[in-house]
């Protein structure tokens, strides 16, 4: 990802919803290593930017607490895998796939995975 400073300040982050790409925020709204929550089509989506500038969009609901807080977690890495740690009970998820790296199931018995959305800048 090589973009000049001028262009990043005006870039818009878009998420692929059911009705097509939807702008959600400006790229500059995203702090490297942190996330924000956005509302699209009735869903809460957590959008993250890592240190290298890559973007990720996943469900904001933490399957372990049920709270909509994933956007407030800490971005990190496990080996090569980019990760997000839930701020509630600290389970770690793969930012690319939404898969939980620590536990297979949430307390409700459902698979502990976060839905993912395609995300891009324009």
């Amino acid at each position: 990802m090589t973009t000049s400073i001028e262009s990043t300040t005006t870039l818009t982050v878009e998420i692929a919803g059911e009705t097509g790409w939807m702008p959600v925020c400006s790229y500059a709204d995203l702090v490297p290593g942190r996330g924000v929550a956005v509302l699209i089509e009735g869903h809460q989506v957590a959008v993250f930017r890592d240190r290298a500038g890559r973007l990720y969009a996943l469900a904001n609901r933490d399957p372990f607490s049920g709270a909509y807080v994933m956007s407030r977690g800490i971005v990190g890495q496990r080996g090569e895998v980019p990760t997000i740690a839930s701020p509630m009970y600290k389970q770690v998820f793969d930012l690319r796939t939404g898969e939980c790296l620590d536990e297979d199931e949430g307390p409700d018995g459902d698979p502990a995975a976060l839905r993912t959305w395609a995300v891009r800048t324009r």
Partner: peptide, 14 residues
């Protein structure tokens, strides 16, 4: 090894 240039994690960052 492997950590420089990366994001760290929820242990080392805080």
């Amino acid at each position: 090894t492997g950590a420089p240039g990366g994001d760290g994690c929820d242990v080392c960052k805080p």
